[in-house]
Design a protein around this nucleic acid. Structure first.
Lengths: 394, 394
DNA sequence: CTGAAAGCGCTTACAG
DNA sequence: CTGAAAGCGCTTACAG
């Protein structure tokens, strides 16, 4: 069992720890990581590479860590100065084509790539943008991440991801982020004035994503309030008169904006302000909240959920837990238009967030702020489009 | 419209470009980013911050980019040497408590945080681990990312995410990754021997995630083959005799392993090798493939899909497109156990991947390899647990 | 076109 | 305990 070598004390303690989750909910799985007893543990087996595999030549394990090939190494090998190596990797340097080609050849052979971060020290351009987003948001809407990653990629920037467990863990994420020479930060969590100050003092542009900055930073935001109001209009116009609102966590601005836009519009239309239930943003939360809400009260004409996860949970609670038909008995509408919303089991009426536009605009705001640090702050709105499917009676 | 200032030529070209997607599939949304005509474009509005908001004091925009506060700035302000500032931020330095406190106070006031990358230049520890994973994988299983992020976080490392559009775009992702002083790389895409060589030459440990390295790197992998075989056993034992396999893309090792494990086992059991259909890994792909496969042929007893997205697509095709009942007419099984698989509309029988264990082991392998560069390569297997729900007749 | 040298922001021996 | 200095891997004036 060389892969669990008892002589490597420190690492062994980590590797060979036993970790057995004991929960026994239906469908749950035992998590077993008992490396110490791996030999007799059918849950995990380790196999060393075979002699055959290792004899494949260049396939052996590394011989030293932290010995990155440097420009000086290449310079020595290529018989030029280190400056020349550097210039060979900079497109706008006046350098002879022959030299460049030679140096590049040698570099390729040695596996040399300029260290972007040593470079960033001198150019002040690290290419790294911190993206701060809760784990829950990633799970609920992963396309948000891929869209941001792509938008940054188009600008030659890369995403350094900080994903706090929830909004209360943001402080740590921000502190960590600060230790990197960032070109910018996109925050999908609420930042305090202190956080924004920290970025400002280090001259790091910040864009708030899907929340407003109250004049403390640039922001890009789906027009939660207005889109939710349109949803209210549409339901009202179709004859719905009683409503329930699954509003998300009490402290989440996105949910609050959406719930508020919906409720305020209904009041304008003459309805009583709908009952609002505080939840989280998850499927399970929506299902539980729905079940709970209809335990005592009669079913409303329509349920507005501040995101699609909640809406799917609410739908399943209505159908499978309460025996009600959607939309015949109750209309359900959500917000986001995640891919699952379009599937035949939900066919959710919802508001599509344009994640591509949000991401593109966030990256663009960062860009602009770098070029013009003193220009006025900007808050961009991105239209949310009503997508009518069959989860609501129209 | 200062937020679309025509004088800023370069950035304007980027910002004010018109981009109108013309696709008109059902449920699709027009993507409008016509910044140039924003004033009259109801899809996007820009508002500058108000004078009031800006008068809030420390809330003004940044005054210069790339002027991070440095240790020297703090040293000057605190009346100590730059070395002392450095020591104040290193826990194991012998320095007087009073000095440390004073320096830290000044640093906090100035918004100073040591630049982790300048530090990495000298310590060879950047704390950054590249994670390479296709966009599609992120969308299909975002928990994979959050699990990796957490496992790295526990070790004080951070994830630098590279997400190629697909496996053919990996080359770019790898080249980009190489330019960072990585402490390691976790690859959820197949790497060529050349890629692995590049990492090796730069002494960067690599762990392959859910694919084997053929003796060229460490790896951690769900035991796709064995788990799929158990699924085959279970279906056979329950009386299923004819099978269809939705196998994923032809070049994807994960799908191949699973399909192969399933088919090989059935052959051992005496069944004819099931028909295998090449698809992608998506819900839409599964739905289309299922529809297509049953256009001509009779329905099989059971459909094995190499991941849950395919299985959900296949289920919906059977139910909504073909009018068949799952599991009464056809059993459907998947692989992964994504959260949606447990919902009442699918209740998918599947194999749970232990994403936490995969991530923890990947991070751990990286760790071990750093400590012992020359130790034998290791391939770890993580058990996949069969989760029986109601999408298959047992 | 090319090289020697300075300097980006740090850490860490080396002196005191 | 503290400071001056060297050096991590680069880029970029400055000379030639």
């Amino acid at each position: 069992m060389p892969w669990c070598d008892p002589s490597a004390r420190t690492s062994r303690q980590r590797r060979c720890g036993t970790k057995v989750a004991t929960s026994r909910k239906p469908g749950d799985v035992r998590e077993r990581l008992d490396f110490a007893s791996a030999g007799k543990n059918p849950w995990m087996t380790g196999t060393n590479d075979t002699g055959e595999a290792r004899s494949m030549g260049n396939a052996g394990p590394q011989t030293a860590i932290g010995k990155r090939v440097t420009a000086s190494d290449v310079a020595r090998e290529a018989g030029v100065s280190q400056s020349t190596v550097s210039r060979s990797f900079s497109d706008d340097s006046r350098i002879s084509a022959a030299t460049r080609e030679h140096v590049r050849d040698v570099a390729t052979r040695m596996g040399y790539t300029p260290n972007a971060l040593a470079r960033s020290l001198i150019t002040s351009r690290s290419g790294m943008v911190a993206v701060i987003v809760t784990r829950q948001s990633i799970l609920a809407m992963p396309e948000m991440l891929t869209a941001i990653s792509q938008a940054l990629g188009r600008r030659g920037q890369r995403m350094l991801l900080f994903s706090p467990a929830d909004e209360s863990d943001v402080q740590n994420a921000v502190s960590e982020a600060w230790s990197y020479p960032l070109e910018g930060a996109i925050s999908c969590v609420t930042l305090t004035a202190e956080h924004l100050d920290g970025f400002r003092m280090n001259r790091i542009p910040v864009v708030l994503y899907n929340r407003r900055a109250r004049g403390l930073a640039d922001s890009v935001c789906t027009e939660h309030h207005a889109a939710a109001a349109r949803l209210a209009d549409r339901l009202w116009e179709a004859g719905h008169r009683s409503f329930l609102c699954l509003a998300g966590p009490a402290d989440a601005p996105v949910g609050h904006e959406r719930a508020e836009g919906f409720s305020a519009r209904l009041e304008e239309l003459g309805a009583v302000r709908p009952r609002s239930v505080v939840t989280d943003f998850s499927y399970a939360g929506g299902r539980a909240a729905m079940l709970d809400a209809l335990g005592a009260s009669p079913a409303p004409d329509a349920v507005f959920c501040v995101n699609d996860q909640l809406a799917m949970g609410a739908t399943d609670a209505l159908r499978y837990d309460l025996g009600l038909a959607v939309p015949q008995d109750v209309s359900v509408v959500g917000f986001d238009d995640v891919p699952e919303a379009a599937r035949p089991s939900y066919l959710l009426t919802t508001v599509r967030q344009d994640l591509g536009a949000l991401a593109e605009n966030a990256a663009s705001l960062l860009d602009d702020r770098s070029r013009a640090p003193d220009s006025p702050l900007r808050d961009l709105d991105v239209r949310g489009e009503l997508v009518e499917r069959q989860s609501a009676r129209f």
